[in-house]
C-alpha cells in the first residue's frame, strides 16, 4: 500500500538526513527546507528520487521550465499531492 504524501515526504527527508550522517528531525509542513532542515540541492535531488520510489511519481521531471518554487515542506506536499492525483 502506498504511504500518504505527507508521510512519504517526512520519511524521505529523514532518510536523507540519516544517510548523510545528520540527526533525524521531526518534519512539519511549515518548515523551510533550507534553513530549518538544512537541505541543499543534492539533498533535495535525493529526496525526489526517494519519493519517486515510494509514491511512483516525479513531478519535476516533466517541468523543464516554470518549476514552482519549493521553499517549505508544505510546498513539496502540495506538488506531490497534485502529481499523485494526476497519476
Amino acid at each position: 500500500m502506498k504511504p500518504t504524501v505527507p508521510d512519504a515526504i517526512a520519511t524521505a527527508i529523514r532518510t536523507v538526513l540519516h544517510d548523510t550522517g545528520r540527526d533525524a528531525k521531526d518534519v512539519a509542513p511549515a518548515m523551510l527546507l533550507s534553513t530549518d532542515l538544512g537541505l541543499d540541492s543534492l539533498d533535495l535531488a535525493q529526496t525526489i528520487v526517494l519519493l519517486e520510489r515510494s509514491l511512483g511519481v516525479d513531478p519535476f521531471r516533466a517541468e523543464a521550465a516554470g518549476r514552482p518554487s519549493i521553499r517549505t515542506v508544505g510546498d513539496l506536499i502540495a506538488i506531490y499531492t497534485e502529481a499523485v492525483s494526476r497519476s
Binding site: S41, L42, L44, A45, Q46, I48, V49, D58, F60, R61, E63, R67
Partner: peptide
Amino acid sequence: GQPSAITGELVA
C-alpha cells in the same frame, strides 16, 4: 548515474 531534474545526475 541516477537522472535528476535538480542536479542532472546523482551518484547511486
